[in-house]
Design a protein around this nucleic acid. Structure first.
Lengths: 340, 340
DNA sequence: TAGGATGCGTGCAACGTTAAACTGAGGTGT
DNA sequence: ACACCTCAGTTTAACGTTGCACGCATCCTA
């Protein structure tokens, strides 16, 4: 173990410079590669660097170059697998560009979401990937801060902000259509959000209705059950509520995989077979669904594409703050497993 | 939308000071609360601050006060629910202390783990929570960097480093003993790691053997199957391998919940009933296990306690770099559900 | 009423880095 | 022989904060 009293007195670029008998600037140039440095000098500098174990102080560098090398990802909850998996991809893609990722967990608190919109701590992050929950659309539109921001998973029709998402209406319609094709006649939808003003839920409900219409099936509001969040628990409770009020759907379209897994849990507890009695489909394609019982049929958004595209958009905007905002739609597909 | 050409020219503390007709120092004091400022002045400063939408530049502040307000959490993978949930708790607890959390994903790459040990980017983080995977014990012991570091989930018997973990030997013994009590006679263990040199796997294997011994049961190496990682997939493959070689355990102790869920997946695919034919127990108590089919019996580590204790240790060490390293054991318990 | 404490504010320097301007030695072209 | 360029380095001045030492009223106490 390192002797604790050895409080290393923060070796700085000047120490390296002194040891290598050059100026700090030269050391800086060796590190950044910004200017030519003779091979001999470069060698000496490198030698001095690991002689002293020097590592540049990023706070200082960032202060100087006005770049933090940090981007924030703000999501409602890291514990939700979809976000966890997405963040994993983001972290990986960010590393390829020498960026580090910092996590902010809003838990849907409005105050936390506003903080995100206001650019978090200025000078601390170069940009923000934001998956909003409760915040209203208008707030994006007159945000004062100029920190580059990319919205994830939201469709802001107004379009003043960069964003990347799947086509939620189409995704929901695809899911519902699949349930219809395999024989669903009373198809429930779990995960609607009453709250107006954007969010993906209304879009998914729209897609659900579109597919019903297209098949000439009538829309029964009694089959649509809202949930406040998208946890397993919400799915389980919603499903229970549905059954308790005597409704017996033969298929269920869930607005997230977690909700679907919760619903399945309840169904099996009540002795109903999935998919024989009730077929269940979700959205997200989290790894869990590949191993659950039964395995989960779901809509697969291209998470890697979402992560990479979002970062591309973000770095693009960091480079040029004034370009037109873009809304990018990432492909999704249907993954058929056992639950439907 | 904000006019993009309005590149806000980074309002600084001096602008605020000018508008409020005070010195920058006074503004700083208002913000930090470090020194008394008269009510009238404070008011004027606050007015100026939101007049200009001023937000302090953290890079500059950090450079000055040598505190980044940032801690890093380095884990193998964020997509693994146990880590995702743990990080969620860490983020929450960190916020209470005005710290932000930055994520590093090592993916078990040695190079990435070394980078973590070397303090990541100096001046960028005040401390590190590290859940190592591949790195050898000796590397902790002569690490050069002095960035405060707390190890998660590892038991480094040498003890030169702060760490917090459950008692892995006891946890494994508890799990195994429970399987024995409910009638297990041929108890497999999935998740052993051949690699010597620490890591939690050997400890769990030790606990497993202890429980067997205590019950007077013999240890059959053929029932212990190693996995390279702790994913669902690894559990599924290991279970398949076990069955394929004709071994039919009546109970399985899995070294993580994910492994357990993978094992269950395979068992059901092969037409075996859980828990009637084979009982399965895991470790971690991830949310998934509350809703899986069947619900998962598991060892529950107190994740909140782990997060909070780790942060406490970390802040403690940040405050006093020379105090003796401490190893803290966090309680765990047995949570009985349906799978065993 | 002198002497010290206290309250509130200011100016200066520094944190560790890098961009920009500068220096000087040597080479090149006319 | 002179102007001009290039190369490899140095010097200087910030980047935006905050800690420290100080200044100057005002208030208390003997």
């Amino acid at each position: 173990m390192l002797d604790p009293s050895t409080q290393r007195p923060a070796v700085g670029i000047r120490d390296v410079a002194a040891l290598a008998r050059v100026s700090p600037t030269t050391v800086s140039n060796v590190l950044s590669g910004n200017r030519r440095v003779s091979a001999a000098t470069r060698e000496r500098v490198h030698w001095a660097i690991d002689q002293l174990g020097y590592r540049p102080n990023l706070s200082a560098r960032n202060l100087r170059v006005r770049r933090a090398g940090l981007i924030a990802v703000a999501v409602p909850e890291i514990g939700v697998p979809y976000f966890a998996e997405l963040i994993g991809h983001v972290v990986q893609a960010a590393r390829e560009r020498d960026y580090t990722v910092l996590i902010d967990q809003t838990e849907g608190r409005l105050e936390a979401e506003r903080f995100v919109l206001s650019g978090m701590n200025p000078g601390m992050v170069d940009g923000i990937l934001f998956s909003p929950l409760g915040i209203e659309r208008v707030e994006y539109e007159n945000r004062r801060d100029s920190t580059p921001l990319v919205l994830l998973g939201e469709r802001i029709s107004g379009g003043g902000v960069d964003h990347v998402a799947i086509d939620n209406v189409a995704a929901a319609a695809d899911a519902t259509r699949y349930l219809i094709e395999r024989g669903g006649r009373r198809i429930a939808a779990i995960g609607h959000q009453e709250r107006e003003g954007g969010g993906t839920a209304p879009q998914r409900t729209r897609g659900y209705r579109q597919a019903l219409d297209a098949a000439g099936m009538s829309y029964d509001p009694g089959l649509v059950v809202p949930t406040s969040k998208y946890h397993r628990r919400d799915g389980a409770l919603a499903m229970a509520a549905l059954l308790d009020r005597g409704t017996r759907p033969d298929a269920v379209f869930c607005y997230s995989d977690l909700v679907a897994l919760g619903a399945i849990h309840t169904l099996r507890e009540r002795g109903l077979r999935v998919p024989e009695d009730v077929a269940v489909i979700g959205i997200d394609d989290i790894d869990e669904g590949r191993y659950s019982t039964p395995t989960l049929t779901t809509i697969t958004p291209d998470k890697v594409a979402i992560a990479r595209t979002a970062l591309e958009l973000l770095f693009d905007r960091i480079a040029d703050g004034s370009r037109e905002p873009r809304q990018i739609v990432v492909p999704h597909s249907l993954t058929v497993r056992r639950s439907a």
